[in-house]
């Protein structure tokens, strides 16, 4: 794994503002790109562990992760900076769009532009999941858990609450079991 570096407070805020403002189709894919590849605040594995915790807590996973990552680097100030960076930019854009909505929706080209972005964002999000899976190299039984989550959400359309609370205990148990088998207690 490549070396990681601690962001300053300003970098934390600006990095999160970037993820929020560019986060078409949800911010999870952008968040990983900025944190792991572009700025190297965390390794792929550290980021994934925080995101996994953010996933089982209520609220958006990336929002929960912003609290945890901000806290890790700069305590309460860091958590507030990361979280506000994530929400303030897009909130401003959204208010602007809502005010312009009538003109915006009918302007020529705008609908096609958004449509093109949506298709690209879908490809980006799928690729991000694949890339994370490849980089993390989970054992086969955890790959099965990931595929189960994907199928349950995308194809069976089960409620996320049900998916998370039925798969989380299994995933935790399988992962702990493997760790204890591979390195027995001293």
């Amino acid at each position: 794994m490549s070396e990681t570096r601690t962001p300053t407070r300003a970098e934390l805020f600006l990095g999160y503002a970037k993820m929020g403002l560019l986060g078409f189709g949800g911010v999870a894919a952008w968040s990983r790109h900025v944190i792991v590849e572009e700025r190297r605040w965390l390794t792929e594995r550290e980021y994934a562990e925080i995101l996994g915790m953010g996933q089982i807590l209520p609220g958006p996973n990336v929002g929960n992760a912003s609290v945890m990552i901000g806290r890790r680097f700069h305590g309460l100030v860091g958590a507030l900076l990361a979280t506000s960076g994530l929400y303030i930019g897009p909130l401003t854009v959204l208010m602007g769009l809502a005010l312009l909505y009538d003109n915006f929706a009918e302007a020529p080209g705008v609908a096609s532009f958004m449509h093109g972005i949506a298709a690209a964002a879908a490809g980006m999000v799928i690729a991000t999941a694949l890339k994370m899976g490849q980089n993390l190299r989970p054992p086969p039984e955890l790959i099965a858990i990931g595929i189960a989550a994907l199928v349950a959400a995308a194809f069976l359309r089960l409620p996320l609450l049900l998916i998370v609370f039925s798969l989380a205990p299994v995933g935790i148990w399988l992962s702990i079991r493997r760790a204890y088998r591979e390195t027995p207690a001293k």
Binding site: M53, I126, I145, I163, I176
Partner: peptide
């Protein structure tokens, strides 16, 4: 650490699922 890692595939699988849901609409 292993317990946290056990949650990772769920997060990654759900990112994949949201990509597929976006793709259907787009």
């Amino acid at each position: 650490k292993p317990a946290q890692f056990g949650l990772v595939p769920i997060a990654v699988g759900l990112i994949g699922a949201s990509g597929i849901t976006l793709a259907r609409a787009a």
